[in-house]
Computed example of a mutant assay.
Amino acid sequence: MAVYPSLISLQCFIVFICISIFSSTVAASEPPLTLDYYKSTCPNVFDIVRKEMECHVLSDPRNAAFIVRLHFHDCFVQGCDGSILLDDTIDLRGEKRASTNGLNSLKGFRIIDKIKNELESECPGIVSCADILTIAARDAVILVDGPYWDVPVGRKDSKTANYDLASQNIPTANEGLLGIISKFLYQGLSVTDMVALSGAHTIGMARCENFRARIYGTTSGKNPLADSNLSELKSICPAMSGPGDNNVTAMDNVTPDLFDNSFYHTLLTGEGLLNSDQEMYSSVYGIETRKLVHKYAADPVAFFNQFSDSMVKLGNITNSDSFVDGEVRRNCRFVNT
């Protein structure tokens, strides 16, 4: 007989979520962002970012996923303040080495550096690294046939990073559905936002370390992989940790270089590469998420519309401290001296 969560456990979960939302300081403030923030100070900012992104995505479509992932990891720690871009120094411990960031597996930093250099030549000291990353993420999606959305700008760059929050706030590959939902709600993002934003995995690659437990059946969840390509996945990712940990494969093996809704079709057939993704369809708690997976699999327009709206909400997660004490970094990797 199937065991379903009790009403008490669901009520406890709801209470926990409410407490999380109430205690969230990152998502509580309304961001003072506008579409024309750089109209007089750097009118070509959007054109410069777009042209640079065109070069990088055309040369390697994987760069689109790298930038979108950077933006997500930035906004989930202290808000969208460019803290993910900071390198370690004697006085600052950055976020790049946090376990949830894959111990330096994040990529795309050099692309942001190149865009920053171009903008510093055009309008020095004007455009923040946080804004560059947010605009670049939008353009990355467009360049692989994804949807458009307007990007409000005016963010400041944080002078700090938070290694501990990077380890705590970002969902992990083998996490259960309730834990993932709580992390999104903490940021002011709804369950609908979570399912839509997860659709960005249609252009992403996953490291063996993050899907090994899934393909060898050792995840704590009850989502056995029903992948017809299981033997191929095992050839990519050996059972034992070691040199193969960094081997990668596409999370959407049908159209890995196109932003579309095929990611959701993999969940319908039990072939989600990451346990955290498959949980949205297979978890016993996934009554709402399962409906959304069905919806976006059947209606790509609905997915695109919601993804656009959710990306705006993601980009509007702010760090109130950065608006008061922040700066526009001259180099995205280091705080100004």
Rank of each mutant, 00 (worst) to 15 (best):
V324T: 15
R155A: 07
L185R: 15
F211K: 08
M53P: 11
Y296G: 04
P152D: 15
C75N: 01
S6Q: 11
S310F: 08
V191P: 01
V127Y: 07
S283R: 10
L119C: 08
V191T: 13
E54A: 08
F303C: 02
A64Q: 07
K114N: 10
T218L: 01
V335W: 04
A28D: 06
E175H: 03
L7I: 13
C332V: 07
W149M: 09
E52P: 09
S23A: 13
E271F: 03
S262K: 08
P300G: 01
S40T: 15
L165N: 02
R333E: 05
Q78K: 13
A28H: 09
T134E: 13
F76I: 08
E279L: 06
A206M: 07
S128P: 05
Y38F: 14
L103T: 05
P147V: 02
A298D: 14
M205N: 00
M194D: 00
L86R: 14
V254L: 14
H56Y: 15
S320H: 09
D299F: 05
N319T: 05
R329V: 11
L258Y: 12
E54P: 04
G108Y: 15
Q11A: 15
A250N: 09
P243Q: 00
S235C: 02
F22G: 12
D277G: 08
T269P: 09
S20V: 11
Q306G: 00
L314N: 09
L92W: 04
D193S: 11
R69I: 04
V324D: 11
V248W: 05
I135R: 04
V328P: 03
A98W: 03
M280K: 12
S9I: 07
Y285P: 02
K159Y: 10
C18D: 12
T266E: 03
V26K: 03
P171T: 10
E120W: 00
Y163I: 04
L119T: 02
V248G: 04
V77N: 02
I126Q: 04
L165G: 02
P61M: 06
R329Y: 01
K96G: 07
R110P: 08
E175W: 03
A196N: 01
R110K: 14
A302R: 11
D150A: 10
G154L: 10
L230S: 10
R330V: 11
C12I: 01
S23G: 13
T255E: 08
N331W: 05
V335G: 10
G315H: 05
R110V: 04
T289M: 12
F46Y: 08
F109S: 11
K295W: 11
D227W: 01
S83W: 00
M251Q: 14
S182I: 12
L230A: 10
S231W: 05
I112F: 03
P152K: 15
N210K: 12
G188A: 05
S228Y: 04
S276D: 07
G94N: 00
G154C: 08
L106P: 07
N223F: 01
I135V: 14
